[in-house]
Amino acid sequence: MSPPLVQLEAAGRAFGARNALRDLTLTIGPGEFVALVGPNGGGKSTLLLLIAGLLRATAGSVRVLGTPAHELSLTATGRVGLVTARPGLYPLLTARENLHHFGELFGFTSSELERRLAPLADTLGLTPFLDERVARLSTGTQQKISLVRALVPAPALLLFDEPTANLDPPAARALFEEIRRRADAGLACVLATHELGAVEGFADRALLVDGRLVRELRFERQPPPRPGPLLTAWQEALAPR
């Protein structure tokens, strides 16, 4: 069995006197698609930020790739990718300029980046938009750019914080399908979301989080659910933007 990529032991995070998360113990291995579900304010985003190393645990430990999570950015460069509800791009720059900015911060040369970008952009249907300013692109396209940014450094772990919150249903479904494909290819994917139907259809595990780990559900792997009649009609009748 592969060693876990993510390992939390009795981890917790308090903001002042308020405990956002407490006593969380879990492991996530390569190729797993784990969904975090729960009420607003239940700590899903906090858990993702702890794993990303953007927040420090105030109790217990959070290790990612064998390293304390808060040291990740300097020790495990690019091995953890993040996609958030807001794409987090510079609106006045083009998609390509944005991707070069972040890629070069990860130490890639311009030509190396182009080599990595091309197949990713092609797979996600982004190639025609690469030289458009981000402000002129739809939220769905911006979200795809954000996904490419996360994938360029070839991460081992991808974290998604409600990435479908601002997407229309076909774009949201396409993103879930893409995450599933990435997980099948060996990436560990952790996703915070309210889309329970999609979680049941695409994820391997769901963790019900409300200030702590309330319950864990495992799903039998089945073929992806077929889109319903309304989504099918939408996909057939309306061009993607």
């Binding site: 953007l54 950015s73 460069t77 958030t84 987090g88 911060l105 990860f106």
Partner: peptide
């Protein structure tokens, strides 16, 4: 405000 700060913090940038 652009939402880029978390991504900068994930990069190997002090």
């Amino acid at each position: 405000s652009c939402g880029t700060l978390p991504f900068l913090m994930l990069a190997p940038l002090t």
